[in-house]
């Protein structure tokens, strides 16, 4: 009842499947952050005033600068994929390296931003923070956890793109097979998009 059809022997490769898997993974990432955005919206709803006061303590300029860095890095990532599609390996490696450098720039900026807060005694469990109203404690709790987890994703992104750069140099990623680089790009855009939401929620609504 089942007729057999001889399939040509070839190494299994399914770019559409790989992309589908990556999109599904990105869904789960969105939901992961979604849980925290949910917490944020509920707590902001309960503590409107205190959230506004706390948000004034964040440096909008630094946040804007970081936003520009991340948006630019998304552009360079897209350019890296465009370059490999046109079979320009060295240009692709160049843009990937640039993406990594921008990601480092973001993290360095973040480091200084956090250390200034720490210097002012605003960190989880600090006495200065615990003496503030509860809404502000929640705001800074969410601030550290959400930007922290986002920062962790940036770090993972650096490793991921670094790995892709290596593969590009070894010609594993090339004009005919670049789905890995595309997936890394998708991941990087997700990191970018999450920041696009974090930025107004923490820095701009005062």
């Amino acid at each position: 009842m089942i007729t057999q059809e001889h399939a040509a022997a070839h190494v299994h490769r399914d770019d559409v499947g790989a992309r589908m898997g990556m999109w599904l993974f990105l869904f789960t990432e969105l939901l992961l952050f979604g849980g925290m955005f949910f917490l944020y919206s509920v707590y902001r709803f309960i503590n409107q005033e205190q959230f506004n006061i706390a948000a004034k303590e964040l440096n909008t300029l630094v946040g804007t600068f970081n936003t520009i860095i991340l948006l630019t890095s998304s552009l360079t990532m897209a350019l890296a994929i465009g370059a490999i599609q046109r079979n320009n390996k060295s240009l692709s490696v160049f843009f990937q390296t640039l993406t990594i450098l921008l990601a480092f720039g973001f993290l360095i900026n973040k480091y200084f931003e956090w250390s200034i807060k720490f210097h002012h005694g605003i960190f989880p469990g600090s006495e200065i923070l615990l003496n503030k109203p509860k809404g502000e404690i929640l705001f800074f709790g969410l601030y550290y956890v959400m930007t922290g987890l986002h920062g962790l994703h940036v770090v993972i992104g650096i490793f991921l793109i670094g790995f892709m750069t290596r593969l590009t140099m070894k010609n594993v990623i090339n004009k005919d097979s670049y789905v890995k680089l595309e997936s890394a790009g998708l991941y990087w855009h997700l990191v970018d998009i999450i920041w696009i939401f974090l930025f107004p929620l923490f820095y701009l609504i005062t």
Binding site: L31, G35, L39, P124, G125, L138, G141, L142, V145
Partner: peptide, 20 residues
């Protein structure tokens, strides 16, 4: 993912004393 983040937040709350 929702329970993932929720349990992670409990761990963070316990380890770092973040108010969540």
């Amino acid at each position: 993912p929702i329970i993932g983040i929720t349990l992670l937040l409990i761990v963070v709350e316990r380890v770092l004393g973040v108010g969540l």
